[in-house]
Design a protein around this nucleic acid. Structure first.
Length: 353
DNA sequence: AACAAGATCAACCGCAAACCC
DNA sequence: CGGGTTTGCGGTTGATCTTGT
C-alpha cells in the first residue's frame, strides 16, 4: 500500500490558491528562501501540503515567470525541442526560463498538438499518436516508439550534453546564454503587459514581480545576484493583485495590509537595479541540503539536456565558471526557420563538435 | 437568455530520482 | 549499503471560462 496523497491528510486544503495563501507563501519564502518544503506548511500555518506549496511557488510565484500567450518564436522553440527531447517538459522549459514546464506542457497539449496534427495534412489515416512536423514520435520514450527513434533521442541527448560541456569549458568564448537566445526573438519580452490570462494568473504574476527584489531583504537568500526589473513593476501591480484578490475571494484577510507594506518596501528600494533575462535564467534554487551554495537546478539552462544523463556531465565543473554555457549552435538551429521542416540529423548534431 | 460543448489551465497524483542518515 | 524522506517530473483531472446554438 503506497503513501496516501498528502491532500488526504486531515485539514489539508486542496484546490486553487487564494491571494492570501500566496502572500503567506511568498512572505515565507522571502524570509527563508525556497526549499525545505516540508517545513513550509508547518511554519506558515498554510493548510497545504508541502508539494502543493512547492508547485505553487515554482509554477506561479517564482520571480521571472512570464505569463500570457506564447510568441511565435517560443512556439517554434517548443516544437523543435519537443521533437528533440520528447515530452521532457522540464528540459524544454529550461530553454525558456520564463516559462514553466507546466505552462509549456499545457500549451503543447492544448494548442500545438492540434496545430501540428492539422499541419500534418488531412488525415492520411495517421493514428492518434502525436508526431512533430518531422514525423518523429513526440514521446521518444513511449513503448510504442520504434527502438531506433528512442536510441536516436538518447544519442541526441548525449550529443547535446557534450556540446554544453564542451562550450562551457571554452573560457575564451563569450558565453551566449538564454539572454541572447531570447533577444533574438523579437517577441521575447518580459512579462508582457498584455496578459491573455484573465484574473488569477495575472495576480500571481504580480506577486512574482514583486518578488523580483526580495533577495535584497533576505541576507540568507540563496540567489544574491537576482535583481529587480523596476521599469515594469510599479505599485499598480500590487493594487491589481489586491483587486483581484478581493473579487475572487470576497475580501482579503486582515493581515493583508502589513504584507503589502512589506512588499512595498521591496519595490521602493528597487529603483537602482535592473533585471535581465540572465537573472531569470540564472534563477536557481538552493538545495535543502546545500545551504549557502548555489546549485544547478531546474531552471538553469546548463542543465536541461543532461538532466537524465548526469553521468555524462559534470554539473559542478560547469557551474564553477559562473557562466551559463553558450548554446550557439543550438540557438542557430532553433531559430532557423528554414530548418523547421528539416529535423536535425545525427550527423549534423555530431558536426557540432 | 439559457444551455451545451469545447477550450483552457491550475492543481493534483503517482512514480522515480536524489538525498540524507 | 539500505531504508526512509524529500524533491522533481510528467500525466491527468476538473473547475472555470469561452464560444456556439
Amino acid at each position: 500500500m503506497g503513501r496516501p496523497p498528502c491532500s488526504e491528510k486531515k485539514g489539508v486544503k486542496k484546490g486553487p490558491w487564494t491571494p492570501e495563501e500566496d502572500i503567506i507563501l511568498v512572505s515565507y519564502i522571502q524570509e527563508h528562501g525556497p526549499g525545505n518544503w516540508r517545513a513550509v506548511p508547518t511554519n506558515t500555518g498554510l493548510l497545504r501540503c508541502s508539494k502543493s506549496c512547492r508547485l505553487r511557488w515554482t509554477n506561479y510565484l517564482r520571480p521571472g515567470i512570464k505569463r500570457g500567450s506564447f510568441s511565435d518564436q517560443e512556439e517554434k522553440m517548443i516544437i523543435h525541442l519537443q521533437a528533440l527531447l520528447g515530452n521532457r517538459w522540464a528540459a524544454i522549459a529550461s530553454y525558456l526560463p520564463q516559462r514553466t514546464d507546466n505552462d509549456i506542457k499545457n500549451y503543447w497539449n492544448t494548442h500545438l498538438k492540434k496545430k501540428l496534427s492539422k499541419s500534418e495534412g488531412h488525415g492520411v489515416g495517421h493514428d492518434d499518436n502525436e508526431h512533430d512536423l518531422n514525423g518523429v514520435s513526440s514521446d521518444s520514450s513511449s513503448s510504442g516508439a520504434p527502438k531506433g527513434q528512442w536510441e536516436r533521442a538518447l544519442q541526441t541527448d548525449i550529443h547535446m550534453a557534450k556540446a554544453a560541456l564542451c562550450e562551457a569549458l571554452c573560457l575564451d568564448k563569450s558565453p551566449i546564454t538564454t539572454t541572447t537566445l531570447a533577444s533574438q526573438a523579437p517577441n521575447f519580452t518580459r512579462a508582457s503587459p498584455v496578459q491573455s490570462s484573465p484574473t488569477y494568473a495575472s495576480s500571481a504574476d504580480n506577486i512574482a514581480r514583486l518578488l523580483q527584489n526580495w533577495t535584497r531583504k533576505s541576507p540568507n537568500s540563496w540567489s544574491p545576484e537576482i535583481t529587480t526589473c523596476h521599469d515594469q513593476y510599479n505599485s499598480n501591480s500590487f493594487n491589481n493583485y489586491h483587486q483581484v484578490g478581493s473579487t475572487s475571494t470576497g475580501s482579503p484577510s486582515s493581515g493583508f495590509g502589513s504584507l503589502y507594506n512589506n512588499f512595498n518596501y521591496s519595490m521602493n528600494n528597487s529603483s537602482s537595479t535592473d533585471v535581465s533575462m540572465d537573472d531569470a535564467a540564472n534563477f536557481t534554487t538552493q538545495s535543502k541540503h546545500d545551504k549557502g551554495k548555489l546549485m544547478l537546478q531546474d531552471y538553469d539552462v546548463t542543465k536541461p539536456i543532461v538532466k537524465n544523463n548526469s553521468s555524462h556531465y559534470d554539473h559542478q565543473q560547469v557551474h564553477e565558471h559562473e557562466e551559463l554555457p553558450p548554446l550557439t549552435l543550438l540557438e542557430k538551429w532553433l531559430f532557423d526557420d528554414v530548418t523547421m521542416a528539416a529535423p536535425p540529423q545525427d550527423d549534423l548534431m555530431m558536426n557540432m563538435f
